[in-house]
C-alpha cells in the first residue's frame, strides 16, 4: 500500500501516541486477525514491554498468547522455531538486539537455515522483534547489528524509520512465511508520532509495506544519501539545512536490509553521481560496503564521481557523550560529509 492513497482516508488522531503504542496496536490487530499469532518475551506481559510495545496485550489475549518468559533467550528463541514448525506464527521479542548473542544459535542455525535445509518444505513464520540503536547506553546496549544478521543467509532484516513503515513492515513481518529480524530503534520507541519528520497519517485499518522497496523521501540533484532506521530522520534534517546552502540531497530510506533495494539507490546515484551511505551499524563488512558495491556493479564505477560511507568506525560504542558523538553518525556529521562531497569533483 502506498502512503499517498491513504492520505485522503479519515484517520484517528494518533499524533500524541508514542511509537511503541502504535506497535502494540499493530500486534493486537494481527493477533485478532490470526489466532496462530502469539508473543513470547521478557517483560512483555504484565509490564507491557520495556518500551511499552506490547502494552495492553496481556489483558486482551491472556497469558497463553502473551507469554512472559524467564531470562532464558536460548530456550524461548528455539521455542519460537518449534512453534513455527508446529504451525503457529510466533513473535519472539528479544529486548535489546545486543542480547541476540545469547540465542544466536537458534536464530542463525535453526530459524534461518531450516527452510533451506528442508528443501523448502518447512516454513518458518517467525518474527524476532528487537530494539537496536544508540541511546547513550554504551557498548553492550547501543548496537544495531543488522549487518550481522544480513550476512547470515535465510533471514529477512527490517529496520523501519517512521510510524507508517513501523506498522506496515511489522504487519508484513508477522504475515511472512520467512524468519524476520525486525529491529526497532530505541531512540524512536518513546517518541510521539507528531515528533517524526516523516509522519504520514496512519490509516484505521491494517496495511502492509512490502520488503525490499526503498523509498525516495526528498528529490535532490547533488548527492544521493541512502540510509535507514533512525538515521533517516537525521538525514532529512541535514537535507533541510543543506538546502539552505544550495546543496540538494536525495534521501533514500532503504527500509529493509534483506532484501536490499539497490536498484532504487542505483537509479538515484546514476543521476546525482554522488553516493553517501549513512549507517548507524559498524563500518566494516556491513551494509554500507555492500550497498556501495552493488550500486557500482549495477551502474559501473564510471557512473559515480564519489562514493562514501559514514558509519560507526569499528569501535564498541563508548559511554562518554563526547566520545559517542565522535563515533556515532549524527546530523552535524552528515551535513559536514555531504558538504565536503558537494564541493568535490
Amino acid at each position: 500500500m502506498n502512503a499517498s492513497t491513504l492520505a485522503t482516508e479519515a484517520v484517528t488522531d494518533r499524533s500524541g501516541w508514542q511509537l511503541s503504542a502504535l506497535i502494540a496496536e499493530t500486534i493486537a490487530w494481527e493477533m485478532r486477525r490470526d489466532p496462530s499469532v502469539l508473543c513470547i518475551g521478557e517483560d512483555i506481559g504484565r509490564a507491557g514491554g520495556v518500551f511499552g510495545a506490547t502494552r495492553g496485550l496481556l489483558d486482551e489475549f491472556g497469558a497463553g498468547r502473551i507469554m512472559d518468559a524467564p531470562i532464558a533467550e536460548m530456550a524461548f528463541a528455539g521455542m519460537g522455531v518449534g512453534l513455527a514448525q508446529a504451525g503457529m506464527r510466533p513473535l519472539v521479542e528479544l529486548m535489546f538486539v545486543d542480547f541476540l548473542g545469547v540465542c544466536l544459535e537458534q536464530i542463525f542455525n535453526a530459524a534461518a537455515k531450516i527452510p533451506y535445509m528442508s528443501g523448502g518444505r518447512q516454513k518458518m513464520p517467525i518474527v524476532f522483534k528487537t530494539a537496536g540503536g544508540c541511546i547513550g547506553s554504551a557498548a553492550q546496549h547501543s548496537q544495531c547489528l543488522w549487518g550481522l544478521f544480513a550476512h547470515l543467509p535465510g533471514l529477512k532484516v527490517v529496520a523501519p524509520s517512521n510510524p507508517f513503515d513501523y506498522r506496515g513492515l511489522l504487519t508484513s513481518a508477522i504475515r511472512s512465511d520467512d524468519p524476520v529480524i525486525y529491529i526497532e530503534h530505541k531512540g524512536q520507541l518513546l517518541k510521539k508520532l507528531s515528533d517524526f519528520r516523516n509522519n504520514t497519517p496512519i490509516p484505521d485499518r491494517a496495511y502492509t509495506v512490502p520488503f525490499g522497496r526503498a523509498v525516495v523521501l526528498t528529490k535532490g540533484r547533488d548527492v544521493t544519501l541512502a540510509t535507514l532506521s533512525s538515521m533517516v530522520e537525521h538525514a532529512l534534517e541535514a537535507a533541510l539545512v543543506l538546502e539552505q546552502e544550495g546543496i540538494s540531497v536525495e534521501v533514500v530510506d532503504l527500509r529493509t536490509v534483506v532484501p536490499l533495494d539497490h536498484d532504487t539507490v542505483a537509479r538515484s546515484a546514476a543521476r546525482t553521481g554522488r553516493l553517501l551511505v549513512v549507517d548507524e551499524d559498524y563500518l566494516s563488512f556491513g551494509l554500507s560496503a555492500e550497498l556501495c558495491m552493488r550500486v557500482i556493479e549495477q551502474i559501473g564505477p564510471g557512473a559515480l564521481r564519489q562514493v562514501e560511507r559514514l558509519a560507526v568506525p569499528d569501535v564498541p560504542v563508548p559511554a562518554a557523550l563526547a566520545l559517542e558523538r565522535k563515533v556515532v553518525p549524527g546530523v552535524d556529521m552528515i551535513i559536514d560529509r555531504v558538504r565536503t562531497m558537494a564541493k568535490g569533483a
Binding site: A75, M79, V81, G82, Q85, A86
Partner: peptide
C-alpha cells in the same frame, strides 16, 4: 539445540 525446539512444539500442543 533440539530441546528448545521441542519445547516450542510442547507449547503449541498445550
Amino acid at each position: 539445540a533440539s530441546l528448545p525446539v521441542a519445547l516450542g512444539y510442547a507449547y503449541a500442543f498445550h
